[in-house]
Design a protein around this nucleic acid. Sequence first.
DNA 1: GAATGTGAAGGTTTTCACAGCA
DNA 2: TGCTGTGAAAACCTTCACATTC
Lengths: 219, 219
Amino acid sequence: MISESKKKKISESTIRRLSLYYRVLSILEKENYETVSSKELAKREKLTPAQVRKDLSFFGSFGTRGLGYPVSELKKQIAEILGLNRGWNVALIGVGNIGSALVGYKEFQRQGFNIKLIFDNDQRKIGSNHKGIIVSDIRNLESDLKENNIQIVVVAVPATVAQYIVDDVVKAGIKGILNFASVNLKVPDDVFLRNENMSMELEYLSFALSNLKDVKGES
Amino acid sequence: MISESKKKKISESTIRRLSLYYRVLSILEKENYETVSSKELAKREKLTPAQVRKDLSFFGSFGTRGLGYPVSELKKQIAEILGLNRGWNVALIGVGNIGSALVGYKEFQRQGFNIKLIFDNDQRKIGSNHKGIIVSDIRNLESDLKENNIQIVVVAVPATVAQYIVDDVVKAGIKGILNFASVNLKVPDDVFLRNENMSMELEYLSFALSNLKDVKGES
DNA sequence: GAATGTGAAGGTTTTCACAGCA
DNA sequence: TGCTGTGAAAACCTTCACATTC
């Protein structure tokens, strides 16, 4: 049972770490661990035990003093917190380089993100089959998103057209957008927009390698 | 001229924001802006002007009071700070879903990351041509990395084999690794490892959509 | 004894506010 | 006047340390 998170504002870092815990717990579950301590969890993610306990404590008391956390149960709880267990209907827009990779990306399904629709504007791609999904014409975007009860849209189109696409996505009532295009998109306040910037981590590496002294860094 | 960053520890967030500034400056440059204020820069990245000024101030004084920052010059300075202008020799390991997408990802070249080598262990892929690069046999990894003066390695192999691959990469003397596999890798302290976890942002969206009240979030 | 849960302390990052300069 | 650069203040996040529970 998750304690109501009331008006407590949960930090972005905490949520990101929950994702990490979730992944480790999946592994521990496969390795048949029954319980895990904050110490072990911390070690696996290069964090401190206190950090792990504090993160979890925002959402409830999942552990047993003297024993640790029950692996499967905690995994379930985190899935609940992150909303992973409800299953999300996702649409992908753009099957170029990145879009194609995402269609085949197993992690997404595993976490409850099901790509239901794929759109493109290229006549040669429309109608083609990607992992069992027929590519739809972007012209039907708004109606298709609504009819298929899509909740999250992944944008993998060229930067030049991303804003137009997103405007239509917003019109369709979508409240969650993951953007892979290298551009800052504008959306209304009630829409959650996250950007996946694949250059950023490389740039961080570039910085780290160029300034070895000042940096100590793991991701 | 960049003021020596001495023993000042620059935060990861600052570096990540420098990446953002860099991208905006590239756009502003194309739009023929001569100068830009911290206010404008902040607006484009949904930050505060003070944040922008503080970030830049860690590295020097690039602006002119009353006027703002010279766009091209600042862009050059940030490239310098991030080490983007030196040009990096990158090797990609694994041309599956994600690997293939990365080969064609234009942003990398644009920022000075040049994919010079591609490796795979699949006989059907070895010898094939990806955007002008012949896929090499992973068995020659260590020697090829050394001979070609590779500085950064991008790992896009299945999670199950990623650690073995990375061990070899480390043996080859590589100090910068970007990992796309869904697994926590171990590397020595003097190697910079960054993880690109594409599920994480989706999970954040999932959390945000499931807890609309507690969250306000842009990426 | 072992490990959680949590206020309080400590540290880091962001924002404020203003002096200083073009 | 307009906007930077920056100490100081405020906000935020992490770690400590210990009472508590199994």
